[in-house]
Amino acid sequence: MSKLTFSHAPMGGGKSLSTLVRHRHATTHDLNSILLVCNPRVEGVVSSRVGMEAPAIEITADTNLFDLLAKLHAQNPIYHVIADEAHFYTAKQIEELAQVVDVLDVDVEAYGLLSDYRTRLFEASARLVELADEIITLPTRPLCACGRTATLNARLVDGQMVTDGEQILVGDIKGNKIRYEAVCRRCHIQTKPKVQASLFTESLENN
């Protein structure tokens, strides 16, 4: 019986590697595996930090995933669908993936971040939590710089952690101005009181 699975981990937690391994397992046996990617760093490719990569179908926020996959399924029956960077999808697209499972009877495996750098759920991740038949925390958890297991994501601008701004902002691939790293909850929240205290002090000084 087909199901919708959501596998999540923080930055560096092996999500893309897991998608590539699953895709590899299917294609090795000549099974039709569809690999989807949204907002990729390299167009039409899923790649991992360990050097593996595979071509993928690139989608946008306007892509109707059920229509796309139903058409492909009619041409050549799909064994399963693997959605990388699923947190970048829209909530509607997650519903369309659930429809693929229920109507086409095709397994869908979504991989992505659970929460953003503010510790808030991504829209698509929240919908996956609500609709998925199975939710998996990937076991390859990265370590925070303090040595604890990292469960959250941090955005660093010029080396300093920030906790406000746009939810989606792609890191600086060539430079180091904007980057992301996995952190534990304790290290993440330690920056917030400092920021709030600074703002409170400024407010007192200006009044």
Rank of each mutant, 00 (worst) to 15 (best):
A91I: 07
T63I: 04
M11H: 09
L143Q: 11
Y89G: 04
V106C: 06
F200S: 11
Q99P: 01
L4Q: 04
R22E: 10
S2W: 08
R120E: 15
T137G: 08
R155K: 12
T191Y: 07
V50L: 14
R49P: 07
A61C: 05
K192R: 13
A61K: 14
A26T: 06
Q196I: 15
G51Y: 03
R127T: 05
C144D: 04
P10R: 07
S2L: 10
S125I: 03
I189K: 06
V170D: 03
V50M: 09
R120T: 11
A83P: 02
G165T: 06
R49W: 02
K15H: 06
L138S: 07
R155I: 04
E95F: 01
V101M: 03
A86H: 11
E53K: 07
V129Y: 08
R49S: 07
V183L: 12
F66H: 05
E130R: 08
R141A: 14
A124R: 00
M1W: 10
D116Y: 00
T151R: 04
R185L: 10
R141N: 05
Q167G: 05
A83K: 04
L65W: 00
R41T: 13
V170Y: 06
P139D: 06
K71T: 15
C187N: 07
P142C: 01
T90G: 11
D62P: 03
P55M: 02
R127H: 02
G51A: 01
Y89C: 13
V81L: 09
Q167N: 04
S125E: 09
D116W: 02
G13H: 03
E205I: 14
Q93H: 11
A124G: 05
A145Y: 04
T90L: 09
A56Y: 00
Y111D: 06
H29D: 14
V81N: 03
G159D: 00
Y180I: 09
H23K: 03
E123R: 11
C144T: 01
I59E: 00
V45D: 02
Q190S: 11
L169K: 08
L4A: 05
R41F: 13
N207K: 12
S48M: 04
E181N: 10
V129Q: 05
G44F: 02
E181C: 13
L114S: 11
A182L: 05
A91R: 11
D62I: 00
L104W: 01
L97Q: 00
K15I: 08
S18M: 12
A126D: 12
L4I: 10
C146H: 06
T28E: 15
E134I: 03
M11R: 03
A124W: 00
T63R: 01
E205D: 12
D30Y: 08
D158C: 07
Q93C: 13
V101C: 10
K3V: 12
E134C: 13
V183E: 04
I57R: 08
K194V: 15
H25C: 06
R179T: 15
H8D: 08
P142V: 01
H80P: 01
